[in-house]
Structures are given as C-alpha cells and as structure tokens.
Design a binder for these strands. Structure first.
Lengths: 158, 158
DNA sequence: CTGATATCATTTGCATACGAATGAATTTGA
DNA sequence: TCAAATTCATTCGTATGCAAATGATATCAG
C-alpha cells in the first residue's frame, strides 16, 4: 500500500486530506495514550532501579500516610488515586511487611484505619530522597523550563 | 504538625530551606510519576467509555498489525512496547476472539507469526475513528498549541 | 422512626505488566 | 565446525487496576 502505487485520484485525495492532518493513516506511536503508557513504563522502570523492594503504589501509600497521618483505607485510596479493590491489596502487602498497621474506627464501624508503623515511618523517610532522584531522572530529558511546562500541562490532563 | 506549632528555630530552618524548593516536605501529588499515573488512568477510562470491548493494549496490537501486516509475536511486542509475557496474553485473547490468527514461521522455527483475520481487520478499521475521538477527548483540556508542546515533551520522556 | 440511599470494605474475575526460569532454535566466533 | 551466546516463546509468580456483586453500617427523608 505504498504511496507510489496510488492512482491519480488517490493522490489527489491524499493531498486534500493532508491539509487536515493525514487522516487516512493511523499512527499508533503518535497517539497520546500510547506515548503516555510508554512514559509511565519508563518511570516505573526507573523507580524499580532505585527502589527495588517497593512499588510506586506502595510508596505512594506510605508517602501519603507519612504526610497526613492515620486515615481510613477508603480515604487513602482517594488521595492516591486507587479504587477500593486496588488499595486493599496494596495495604494488605504493606501490612504483611510490617510497614503499616490497621485498626477499627471506634465510631464508624465500617471504616478501617491505616497508619504507619515505626518501621514504615523509618522506611518512607529513608526512601523519600531516593524518590527525589527518581523524579529528577525521569525528567532528565527535559530542560528546567521544559519540565515546568510539561508538569503544568500534564497536571491539566490528570 | 501545622506550621503554627513550629518553634522559632524550626521557623528559621523552614525559611532557609524554602529558598531551594521546600525540600523538607514531600508532596506526592507534585511528583511526575504520580501525575503520569493519573493521566494514564484518565486516558484508559476515556478509552473504555468509547471502546468497551477492547483494551488499549489489544487495540494497539490490532492497530500495529493493520499498519505493518503479519509479523512475529516478539517483533509486535517490541513495536507496541510490551514484553514477551504480556504480548502473549494479549495475542491469546485476540486469537480466542477470532481477531488475529497465528502461524509458524517456515524458516525460523522459533518464531510465531501473527496476523489480522478479516474480522480483525474489519474491527480495527471500524475502531480507528473512535480512537481519534478518544485522543481528542484526552487532550481536550489543552489548547492546540499546548497539545503540540505537550506531545513534543512527552515524547522526550517516553 | 423507618425504609430508601449512600458509604465502606471485601471478594471475584479479568486484563495488563514484568522479572525470572526454561526450552527450543538460531547465530556467532574462535 | 562446534561450543557459547543470543533470540524467541512459554510458564510461573507477584502486583497493580478496575467492574461488579455483596454485606455491614451509617445517613437521610418523609
């Protein structure tokens, strides 16, 4: 289906359509969703290379608990953008490793309170500097000005 | 832990450190990895709202096969940024639905060739216009100029 | 007060995503 | 040539991520 095999009519059509963005061909590698997925993959790989024993979602849970203190599992999920099923798995694994502990809310018996253990607090405080490095490496292909622009626009899409 | 409970010494420390970017506090919601994850989540949700019966990775596989024609499973994985284990699962599910078919490479017996079926070709050609809409909606919070800038910078990170 | 709603957590099922190990086939290099 | 290294595919284990269903509890409206 090379362009050199097109008839004159097809060629005319192509020339007309080229004006509004080559609508005839679909280039997966130019789609925002595909590039977004790849950029996310690269970040996760960088994260793993620096922090091998914790995933980004696990880190996010610990960092948020460190920031705001004890909360319900549901509220934590909202703050770190995880649905209820996902956050449960993350908390279960952190609990199994002794990094967080859970307790029942005294008043509202539906709620499960989550908090850092001393080990969890030590871990997140040790890891935050590494996370800053990961952020830097993720953004390393951009200049400082580009980084500011990128983060501003990315935030609009999130 | 409010700032109004800080001692005078802490306050001085905070003022000094504020000069190089508030390094004492870690704000998860400002980290590129976290925002990248949320932006990706939003895109996947938009995708699902328009194309309910196919996931973005499945769509990517069909779109790439439509673009380049028959190829090995391994090569396809490289082109759509999936490792061998992941692409196998995606192809297995597309195969089970009759959208792709696989065959053995005659010369190199290690390779598994993958190609669209007529049904797969019809499906991807029907879905590509929807995918364009999804791209538009994903980028809707940005102006045209911002979109161009964003895609250029995002590509640098991917 | 109480029935309808809403919220919180859990469970199940399905689909990525990737590291590590394995086996088969191919390519390389001394 | 032939042993070593590489490539391709598969399998296993672990970890998100989300929809849907369920059960317990809490809130709201009449």
């Amino acid at each position: 289906m090379g362009r050199f095999e097109m008839s004159g009519e097809d060629n005319l059509l192509r020339l007309v359509e080229a004006e509004d963005g080559d609508e005839n061909n679909y280039h997966l590698q130019d789609q925002v969703g595909f590039i977004l997925r790849k950029a996310h993959q690269r970040h996760v790989a960088l994260f793993a290379s620096h922090i091998g024993d914790l995933t980004p979602p696990q880190f996010a849970a610990l960092a948020k608990l460190h920031d705001i203190g004890e909360t319900s599992q549901n509220q934590l999920g909202t703050l770190i953008a995880m649905d209820a099923a996902t956050v449960k798995g993350v908390i279960d694994r952190l609990k199994a490793r002794g990094l967080v502990e859970v307790s029942k809310h005294e008043v509202d018996k539906r709620r499960l309170l989550v908090n850092l253990t001393p080990e969890g607090r030590a871990a997140i405080e040790r890891l935050i500097p590494l996370a800053r490095t990961i952020t830097e490496e993720t953004l390393a292909p951009l200049t400082a000005k580009e980084t500011a622009t990128f983060l501003r626009l990315l935030a609009k899409l999130a």
